[in-house]
């Protein structure tokens, strides 16, 4: 550890992030409530709550389909949603670079308020810090949220079981594509907007429509590491294998074009408004029907199933009908050209 330094891969949500958490943070913070899930489920005076926190450092702060303000609410709301918790209260902390335009900050705050209202969550406290020029890139936001656990829902990354269906709530890789395009690092243009959205309203509808609450086993929002990273996490935490049908994975043509040019895999591009769901096959149709009645879940589809083996691995049934493994996440997203 003496010589090691933090690299971008440590923040990319893949294996290096997991290692950093396990070898460093978890070692120091070890306690029974520390969670590997999107939010911790806690008991406070007999009331079950979910609690989580998330930092946002997206650059540029505004991108097609959203901005960092909206994102900072969505990320935390979606983490609570994945635990089957109704998001209630949020706090936010701003780290702002000296020189950042006030009107941009106003736009960010307005967007946060609007997004919070849309999912019935209240922003109850905040903190403001200003850092010297160059110490922060524009504006960074951290939000912390508390939600109220629904009585009949119990989800977790370790609860997926063989036989489950694997669903995704819409086409993949939009947010990562929108950011890549907005940064204009590679001179590519495409009409792709971020999928950034608060998913509580969508899931509230699904929870209500669910014939049996315990049939929904795992929910996780596919953020920075994309759907592929989330599937590997769940395969590992649940000790199961996941088998996807390559042709069933929804991906917009422009996202395919972009990833084709850069040699990237859309399964590893970030989403900010997509959940991966694992449920008993008996309720798949009901879940999909409920999702299709919502705006955010209109493109929901079944992409695969869970098997007992090979545990911890995600495989794909290819267009040739053969089976291959999805390459595990490697961290920093690097274009493959030569």
């Amino acid at each position: 550890m003496d010589q090691e330094r933090i690299t971008l891969a440590h923040g990319a949500g893949g294996q290096k992030t997991a290692e950093l958490i396990e070898r460093l943070f978890a070692r120091h913070f070890q306690n029974p409530d520390l969670t590997a899930d999107d939010a911790a489920v806690l008991s406070l005076g007999g009331t079950k709550i979910a609690m989580t926190t998330d930092g946002f450092i997206v650059s540029p702060w505004r991108f097609p389909g959203g901005n960092i303000g909206e994102l900072s609410i969505c990320g935390t709301v979606n983490d609570l949603t994945c635990m089957g918790a109704r998001p209630r209260y949020l706090t936010c902390a701003f780290q702002i670079e000296e020189g950042f335009p006030l009107r941009d900050l106003d736009a960010i705050a307005a967007s946060m308020a609007e997004t919070a209202r849309a999912c019935g969550v209240t922003i109850v406290a905040g903190d403001t810090k200003v850092a010297g020029r160059g110490q922060v890139d524009g504006c960074f936001i951290t939000t912390t949220g508390i939600g109220e656990l629904l009585p009949n829902i119990r989800t977790g990354g370790a609860l997926a079981r063989p036989g489950d269906d694997v669903l995704v709530t819409g086409d993949i890789g939009r947010h990562g594509s929108a950011i890549l395009l907005a940064r204009d690092s590679y001179g590519i243009e495409a009409e792709v907007t971020s999928d950034c959205a608060p998913l509580w309203p969508m899931m509230e509808h699904v929870f209500a429509a669910l014939p049996q609450g315990d049939a929904l086993h795992t929910l996780r929002d596919a953020t920075r590491g994309g759907v592929g990273t989330v599937l590997y996490e769940i395969a590992r935490e649940s000790g199961v294998g996941i088998e996807l049908r390559a042709e069933a994975i929804p991906c917009a043509p422009a996202v395919q074009g972009l990833t084709g040019l850069l040699g990237l895999n859309p399964l590893y591009l970030a989403c900010e408004g997509r959940l991966v769901l694992f449920c008993a096959p008996a309720v798949t149709d009901a879940v999909l029907a409920a999702l299709h009645e919502t705006r955010e879940g209109a493109g929901a589809t079944r992409i695969g199933t869970v098997s007992a083996a090979p545990a911890g691995r995600v495989s794909l049934i290819t267009e040739l009908g053969t089976r291959t493994l999805l390459p595990p996440p490697t961290g920093e997203l690097l274009p493959r050209i030569c």
């Binding site: 009409e191 422009a254 074009g257 972009l258 040019l261």
Partner: peptide, 9 residues
């Protein structure tokens, strides 16, 4: 050029 909607010079 246009590759399924992604354009680049």
């Amino acid at each position: 050029v246009d590759a399924s909607g992604a354009r680049r010079e």
